[in-house]
Design a protein around this nucleic acid. Structure first.
Lengths: 251, 251
DNA sequence: GGGGAGAGATGCCGC
DNA sequence: GCGGCATTTCTCCCC
């Protein structure tokens, strides 16, 4: 545990090794260069960055912009620090997939490491699964006499968000999207419809996309395939947050 | 610019405001609670986290595990700090999409802020585009007398990685995947084939997936549709890193 | 800005 | 572990 301003690189090497051994959260503001080889190959010349080493040995390198790290190594990596030529060098290794990262650090602006504890669980509402559950519980939203049958029905080719019948008793497959539905949403629906047609030997199945909006191209393709679209917003309140319904596994 | 161990919350409020005004990179190790409302709704009870405020006003909250932030606000957000009841409160706002984050901070373990400069560009090789370029430049890899015609050909329904003819002079569409090809790769290919068939009035078009591997289901669906698969690894060296070929826009 | 799709995607769940 | 898929996806590129 500690926090240091402008520590020399040799001192940082020692601090790092101790903190890694103790599974502390380490944060390093520095000027560095990053080379990666594994699932791809990348190189990033010297610049100011923040390096974070997490207690689970995730390592991320952040630039001054953007939400995502510019380079990273996933949890469980092995991290070794070396000091030579006034430089601090980190070598980070992963097996499965086999990958390697080399970080060359010129100058550390600040270093800190802390023990961290976080047992809280993130609760989110407004997901696609929440939309499906909402439709399952309030099928009148679809305006077609929909009678739901199952939720997140598993098939070999993916799971169907909501399955049921319309007011004519025809089997109906509903694919939910929490944001604007696109071409791949249509092909996904199409895949389920074809799959169930085949496995059940049914000729006519109603395909429906439920989403707050849809792209022009997706709507055109939807019509080409005789499917429909209904405008539905994802639920945005914790009130509906019940435990997930069980699936009925028949497909 | 500065680094502080266990600063009191009132002091942090002042430091934060100055650092935000100066567009510095701010790092805060603290115990906090996070509530978000915008594209979804989320809540996260108190726990130890690292908060990073970037010069572009991206704000990310990191837990002790994982590569991704548990909560975030994208670049350009407005951040306001308040101090009351010994607590430090951050209110973060975004327009378009309209979203809000509230962070309640109990105790700050360490604070640092720094001016940062990073003009380097990340270079990556081994992407899908690199695979397509490799096939374009060395078509013999496909083992079918492939004669490439264009790269990343734009259509209304997405772009075709590589387009060309096989040794029988039949039009051929190649979809590359840098990792294992799955069902959606097949439906994507299928979409392009159907699109070009329609727009060109051609009856027979060869569809090919080039990837290091393919799932069983994807291979079955590929056969159902009369398409083919060829095992190709993405290039993993900078030697092939030429400037991108121009597209020929005829579809 | 909309639309389409890749990403070293990550992460989750089900089999 | 594989497979399918959502993500407050993010990010880039093209029209």
């Amino acid at each position: 545990m500690g926090s240091y301003l402008e520590p020399d690189n040799e001192k940082v090497k020692g601090l790092l090794e101790k903190a890694i051994a103790r599974n502390e959260m380490i944060i390093l503001t520095c000027n560095c260069r990053v080379d990666y080889k594994g699932r791809a190959v990348s190189e990033l010349d010297f610049g100011d960055r923040v390096i974070m080493v997490k207690p689970d040995n995730t390592l991320i390198v952040h630039r001054p912009e953007g939400r995502n790290p510019v380079n990273w190594m996933s949890a469980g990596s092995s991290i070794k620090a070396e000091f030579y030529d006034e430089l601090l060098e980190l070598n980070v290794e992963n097996i499965n997939p086999r990958e390697h990262m080399n970080i060359l650090i010129k100058r550390v602006s600040s270093y800190s490491s802390h023990k961290m504890q976080d047992g809280s669980k993130l609760r989110v509402v407004g997901s696609e699964a929440d939309m499906a559950r909402m439709i399952y519980e309030k099928p009148s939203l679809l305006n077609c006499g929909f009678k739901p049958l199952s939720l997140e029905e598993q098939t070999k080719y993916g799971f169907i968000d909501v399955l049921g019948h319309n007011n004519k008793g025809e089997l109906m497959i509903v694919e939910c999207k929490r944001y604007k539905a696109d071409l791949s949403a249509v092909t996904q629906l199409r895949r389920y419809v074809e799959r169930v047609k085949k496995s059940k030997g049914i000729n006519k199945i109603i395909g429906l996309i439920a989403a707050p909006s849809i792209t022009k191209n997706a709507e055109a393709m939807l019509k080409d395939w005789g499917f429909n679209y209904v405008k539905i917003e994802p639920p945005m309140s914790f009130i509906l947050d019940k435990s997930r319904q069980r699936r009925i596994n028949t497909y």
